[in-house]
């Protein structure tokens, strides 16, 4: 007798489960869950806080906000950021001032912890939202964040 009741309960639970999946099969057009990712690249909008990679924004005069204080370099847990700096004469004041030569960022080592951006006193570096970082050569992931010929925006102090 338990043989037949086993078959009955087996089929019953099977149908209960299939009713759930069947219900979704019918409703799938109205509630779409997945995205067609490479096709929707143009319309895909990431969240504004998404941690894609560290970038240094420049304004229209090719000026950035980095004073070369090295707070980000100290805050970074694994040495993803290296700053090469020098003391140069500031043309506005005529005094010697710390200037960055290169702000080097190793994306290949970055853990996206966000401590550098938290540590930056002048908001010189921010998160970018791009996430397609695959390259053929690893050296392409070592980036210089300040653009060639750029200089510090006037009026920004440490």
């Amino acid at each position: 007798m338990s043989y037949f009741s086993d078959i009955y309960s087996g089929i019953k639970t099977l149908l209960t489960g299939m009713r759930v999946t069947g219900g979704h099969f019918v409703r799938i057009r109205s509630e779409n869950i997945t995205q067609l990712y490479p096709d929707n690249r143009d319309t895909l909008q990431m969240f504004e806080r998404f941690r894609g990679e560290v970038v240094m924004p420049h304004d229209e005069n090719n000026e950035h906000r980095c004073t070369g204080c090295q707070s980000c370099e100290i805050a970074c847990p694994n040495g993803s950021i290296e700053i090469i700096w020098d003391r140069q004469v500031d043309p506005a004041t005529g005094k010697k001032k710390k200037m960055i030569d290169k702000h080097i960022y190793h994306l290949s080592m970055c853990t996206m912890c966000g401590l550098c951006i938290n540590a930056c006193p002048t908001d010189a570096i921010v998160w970018a939202q791009n996430f397609e970082n695959a390259v053929y050569d690893r050296s392409a992931l070592t980036k210089v964040l300040n653009q060639p010929g750029s200089k510090l925006k006037a009026g920004i102090e440490e």
């Binding site: 969240f47 806080r49 998404f50 853990t111 996206m112 912890c113 966000g114 938290n118 998160w127």
Partner: peptide
Amino acid sequence: FEETCGARLTMNYYVPGGLMF
């Protein structure tokens, strides 16, 4: 999580003393 912390798996949202943002 992604909207508030910016990450989906490795969050690093808490800092000693409070929250990152």
